[in-house]
Simulated assay, not measured.
Amino acid sequence: MNLSPLPTIMLEPLVRAALLEDLGRAGDLTTDAIVPKDLWATTVLSAREPGVVAGLDVATVAFRLIDQNVDVKVHRADGSKVAPGDVIASVSGPAQAMLTAERTALNFLCHLSGIATATASVVAAVRGHGAKIVCTRKTTPGLRAVEKHAVRAGGGSNHRFGLDDAILIKDNHIAIARGIRPAIERARVSVGHLVKIEVEVDTLAQLEEALALAADAILLDNMSVDELRQAVAMVDGRAITEASGRITAATAPTIASTGVDLISIGWLTHSAPILDIGLDYHVL
């Protein structure tokens, strides 16, 4: 997988805040009291269960923010599948720094690898269909960039990154605007030609109205499989179709078989379980 890493300047503020939260007002009392400053060690990051790796860049930043002398050698890059016992990376340098950064590095690495693993499971479930698996804005506050990167590591794609890169007209927008037509018309005169407009619909009647107004994409919210098939036929390639609403790896194949272009899943980022990854030390 050719997955470009996020720039370090994006990662440092997230990791710095996490380290400061852990260090508190007095630093690492345990490590500072027990581990000599001049002791160097090597560590091995290894998988304890099968999954997909994501977050190595973030973990690396955690170690190096504590001490620039820590060296991280990656053996299995983000997006790689791993089995129990597989070595993901080796870390060597001052033992104090590695012990102090260990929990923050693992918190990020396990969480993001969990997202990549969950995404990969759904991507595998719909293989053979044309639908892409995409995440949503249901992300951990402050971690959206790295969580969406983890979705890409798992073979998924990203929906909009925030409120500022596309228009998504949802049910409350429609209610306040008093209809799909005024909502789309107001949106269209307010943004430039490069901004896409997507409309959420939950009935075929709403879909027909959105299509008549040339929406770029249609979010088919909580529709049955039969309704999704009818919706895809009605759209007939005139807009991007997106299915959403309590979709799992078990239900995704049937939904993908309806012909929708996208399947959006919020739990990939807000509820995916971690991937268990350990860090073992060998004193030099």
Score class of each variant (00 low, 15 high):
1 M>A: 09
2 N>K: 15
2 N>V: 13
3 L>C: 09
4 S>E: 15
5 P>G: 08
10 M>Q: 15
21 E>S: 00
24 G>Y: 01
26 A>E: 10
26 A>Y: 11
28 D>P: 05
32 D>Y: 01
38 D>I: 02
46 S>C: 11
46 S>L: 14
49 E>Y: 04
49 E>M: 10
49 E>Q: 14
50 P>M: 05
59 A>Y: 07
64 R>M: 12
66 I>Y: 08
68 Q>F: 08
70 V>F: 09
80 S>R: 04
85 G>Q: 10
86 D>W: 05
86 D>L: 06
87 V>N: 14
94 P>Q: 10
97 A>W: 00
104 T>K: 01
106 L>M: 00
107 N>Y: 01
108 F>S: 00
112 L>G: 08
112 L>P: 06
112 L>H: 10
114 G>K: 08
114 G>H: 11
115 I>W: 02
117 T>H: 03
119 T>P: 00
126 V>H: 01
129 H>L: 00
130 G>V: 00
132 K>A: 13
135 C>P: 01
136 T>Y: 09
139 T>C: 10
139 T>E: 13
141 P>L: 06
149 H>L: 02
155 G>M: 11
163 L>C: 15
176 I>L: 13
178 R>M: 05
185 E>A: 14
186 R>L: 07
188 R>F: 04
190 S>N: 10
190 S>Q: 05
194 L>I: 03
200 E>S: 12
205 A>S: 12
210 A>R: 05
215 A>M: 11
218 I>T: 03
224 S>E: 01
230 Q>R: 13
231 A>R: 04
239 A>N: 06
239 A>D: 12
244 S>Q: 09
245 G>H: 07
246 R>V: 02
247 I>L: 08
248 T>P: 08
250 A>F: 10
256 A>R: 03
258 T>F: 03
258 T>N: 08
261 D>M: 06
263 I>M: 11
267 W>K: 12
269 T>Y: 04
270 H>S: 06
272 A>S: 15
274 I>N: 08
283 V>N: 10
283 V>S: 14
284 L>E: 14
284 L>F: 11
